[in-house]
Nucleic acid binder design. Sequence first.
RNA 1: GCAGCUGUAGCUCAGUUGGUUAGAGCGUCGGAUUGUGGCUCCGAAGGUCGGUGGUUCGAGUCCACCCAGCUGUACCA
Length: 519
Amino acid sequence: MASETKLKARKARGFVDRGPGDVAATEAMLAAIRKVYEIYGFEAVETPLVEYTDALGKFLPDQDRPNEGVFSLQDDDEQWLSLRYDLTAPLARYAAENWTTLPKPYRSYRCGWVFRNEKPGPGRFRQFMQFDADTVGTASVAADAEICMMMADAMEAVGLKRGQYVVKVNNRKVLDGVLEAIGLAGDDNAGRRLTVLRAIDKLDKFGPEGVKLLLGAGRKDESGDFTKGAGLDEAQIDRVMKFVGVVAYLDFMGDDDKPSSALLFDGERKEIEPGKHTVLEALSYYFGDSPKALDGIQELHQIETIVRAAGYASDRIRIDPSVVRGLEYYTGPVYEAELTFEVPNDDGQIVRFGSVGGGGRYDGLVSRFLSEPVPSTGFSIGVSRLLAALKAISSPIVAAAKEPGPVVVLVMDRDRVGDYLALAKKLRDAGIRAEAYLGSSGMKAQMKYADRRGAPCVVIQGSNEREAGVVQIKDLIEGAKAAETIASNAEYKAARPAQVEVAEADLVETVRAILARHA
RNA sequence: GCAGCUGUAGCUCAGUUGGUUAGAGCGUCGGAUUGUGGCUCCGAAGGUCGGUGGUUCGAGUCCACCCAGCUGUACCA
């Protein structure tokens, strides 16, 4: 009758609800990461979800879609506000606003929801959580190296094993040098530079042939849709493919710092000196004519030296020139934490989680607000994505977060609810999670309720028991096991598996024993 | 954004060349069992067939447009 205009209960597109399991697992994971950041000496800070739109800034080379992708609203004084879309821009604002009083370099971490107003997809939502750490106010590559080390430690702190993840490091200067080398320097070429970088970034997805197409005329995808390319000439494509070739070589070898090896340069075999870094040597050979590229390669050398000295081998932190990242405010080293394992999903398809975090050096971000340069570097972990990955491999940190349900006190005589609440209180006073049933259904439904709550046991006290001063306590976990061997219903009812009758005075002690049994 | 595919019960799906009151399994709720979560049996609730318009005596089925979802691609601060 009244159903004609009923509201449909539905959540907004691209947003998700999280149940008790997810909430608990997230808490556990965040605690593990926080511990790592803390022990490195980083301190907590929290900033609002809302910032003035201009503080968030959108100074990308591709200014063609200003404000798109951001949730914005106008204040009553007509100023534009936006929901933050990452944690770096708000940190830059915070650091600038408090610059005179902060200890410098300022090392801080923060965790929170960020929002992006864009098309959601599998594993991509319009609200998600990030967990960042940043060092603000130092240009030293040691800060970059330390961030990488901390990320590698964080990955292991959440239960990933060595080999299941790798932190890849590149340098924007190397990429810029490559672009410079093919004559794409200067402001007029900003758009094409971007297209080339995006093409390089697609190596994983489409392979060298796909990248080549994207550098030239363009590429058709499997639905027949066409992607326009960068329109480079053959000589330029050739040069970029040299770079791509180095990247592909690294994929092929699987290890970037073999102590010494021979390598084919333009078909000519050359020995690489012992102790030299193969990939960086190759890059120097091909792009050594660009001062910018050399500068970047030099920085990568330094980072590598630092992390190796600190005991982080290439299975944890690795130089990888294929990391492109962001394309916007990064000015130097960039990093990406990648998961290396694959897992079948519910449909049996193989899923790669890929990147679960990334970051880099952003020397221009804080100084937008100040009259002095404030070189900074930081990293962001995609919390939701990392959690999804940990769930897929049944990581202990996720499993351990699962709480058992409360002990449920069944309500047998509705007019004596007070007595049942008193029983529950007795358990609570002993530190046991407990509740009396507050619905209106009969005993059978109450048992189902307890079952669904994951209750370890139920407490039953009808008039007979009350008069005798006793309670029935049924162990639901043992009971379920026992039930498997009982075939007929009558027998099942009569058996009352895993149920004991004890004096009311022994209630707490008996429940405790059951909890201990299943702990 | 672009391209392709798909929309029928809470979920997974049937539904014949257009033909009467749109079905099944699972799930949910109730009963058998008035005090026991499983099993079994019985029963019930639950649908504007994504929406709007059109063709037709008649549309879940055919047509147009719209909306939503999925996949790919683009973008991703």
